[in-house]
Design a protein around this nucleic acid. Structure first.
Length: 364
RNA sequence: GUCAAGGUGGCGGAGCGGUCAAACGCACCAGACUGUAAAUCUGGCGCCCGUACGGGCUACAUAGGUUCGAAUCCUAUCCUUGACA
């Protein structure tokens, strides 16, 4: 049986969990109480971005991210692997990758050297409940040989990460019961054979779980569930399977069925800021049927036709927005570009996702 | 009443003889967003036909005129604003 709890230093949390991305130790437009009030039980912060700002010195002074942002629930950090993809590989001149690690030069700031060991060490200092190893993401549309190189480097970095992790756990006197989780990340692009090999070799190294990055998935509805299945079938049953950067609500439902229990994604928060609110096609939370084909749709609050709509955004929602304000009001707030629109919409979309995980628990 | 400046697409506002269906901005419409360089980006936006390349029609206050050609020059009229009476 797949894990049913996630152990945090603040307690146990039921799975599945959706972690909104609080990349720079903030879910954009929200404060930590807002996140809690959306019934979110965990967030994900980012190694690269926190290393850059506010930097290790500040985080250390607070004894970790939880104190820094007064967040008292589950906390996960990402390794910076995704930034290797988006900030270095995709933008020539922004840095370079070697077998040792990666150097970020971007955005006029000081150079940041990130090695697998450094990523682990920094994440341990963040005080997170789950640490993710630095990986070398397989870009889209590369040859088998190129993909193979990223897999090899990912494996090599995973070994070094594990070694560093064990060393630090010993140094910090962690026990098996209170140490953070450590998860590896599977690469190999769309090559099933490479994905299988990568999964098996990571399992040999030994982790608490494996991540499957959403970045390399196909476009739109062509989500590569087959790769997810390969990872699931080749990993131990007690492993956490983490859908990194995943995803749209129906993708989460589908991956849950494949054994995935942890998810993080910028979509609900970014979409909220871009005026796309998620709405369950149901008259109440109890009537939500996530098994149905079209269990949700979007509400775009900038349409003129909504300017006088006195209904709530969603009847199947108990968030701050839906229990207090009309569609007309949120449309108005967006129209006049008041920042409260972003906050209310973000809280709403996060509550949509926390309801989604609640429904998954009920249905399983 | 005299003089001056002006009247451009839903709005603001460029253009001041041809490359103008008219820059740019706003508004509006459509789309994107997946381990956050993102409160962002892309496309459309007179009417008709075509998926598109494109073609046709009507337009820059109104009516005339000059010119091969006018949103752009001239005349008259009607409005707007300011100054002087």
């Amino acid at each position: 049986m797949r894990p049913v709890f996630f152990r945090s230093k603040f307690g146990l949390y039921n799975l599945p969990i959706f972690f909104p991305d609080a990349t720079k130790a903030v879910v954009r437009t929200l404060d930590s109480r807002d996140i809690e009030n959306a019934k979110i039980s965990g967030i994900l912060v980012n190694t690269y971005h926190l290393l850059k700002e506010p930097g290790e010195r500040v985080i250390k002074k607070f004894g970790g991210v939880s104190n820094f942002m007064n967040w008292n629930k589950a906390l996960v950090s990402d390794s910076g692997g995704f930034q290797i993809m988006t900030l270095v590989k995709k933008i020539p001149g922004n840095g370079h990758i070697t077998d040792d690690g990666v150097i970020f030069k971007c955005l006029g700031s000081k150079e940041i050297l990130l090695t697998p060991e450094e990523s682990i060490r920094f994440q341990m200092n963040l005080g997170v409940d789950m640490v993710i190893v630095l990986d070398d993401i397989t870009p889209q549309n590369v040859s088998y040989q190129e993909a193979k190189l990223t897999v090899n480097r990912t494996i090599d970095w995973a070994k070094r990460s594990k070694k560093e992790f064990v060393k630090l756990c010993r140094y910090k006197n962690f026990t098996e019961e209170n140490r953070p989780y450590l998860i590896g990340v599977v690469q190999g692009g769309a090559f099933a054979e490479l994905r299988e090999e990568c999964t098996q070799r990571l399992v040999e190294i030994g982790f608490d779980g494996l991540g499957y990055g959403g970045w390399t998935v196909g476009k739109l509805d062509n989500f590569n569930y087959e790769i997810a299945r390969i990872i699931s079938e080749n990993s131990p049953i007690n492993y956490f399977l983490f859908g990194l950067g995943i995803g749209k609500p129906h993708e989460i439902v589908a991956l849950y069925d494949l054994g995935f229990r942890l998810f993080d994604c910028v979509l609900p928060t970014r979409d909220a800021r871009h005026k796309r609110l998620y709405v369950y096609n149901a008259k109440s939370i109890d009537e939500i049927n996530i098994k149905s084909e079209n269990f949700y749709s979007y509400y775009i609050p900038d349409k003129e036709k909504h300017c006088a709509d006195d209904q709530p955004v969603s009847l199947a929602c108990d968030c701050l927005l839906c229990t207090n304000y009309s569609r007309a009001y949120i449309a108005h707030l967006f129209k006049i570009k008041d920042v409260s629109a972003l906050r209310l919409a973000t809280i709403h979309n996060l509550r949509f996702y926390s309801i989604l995980t609640e429904r998954l628990r009920i249905n399983s």
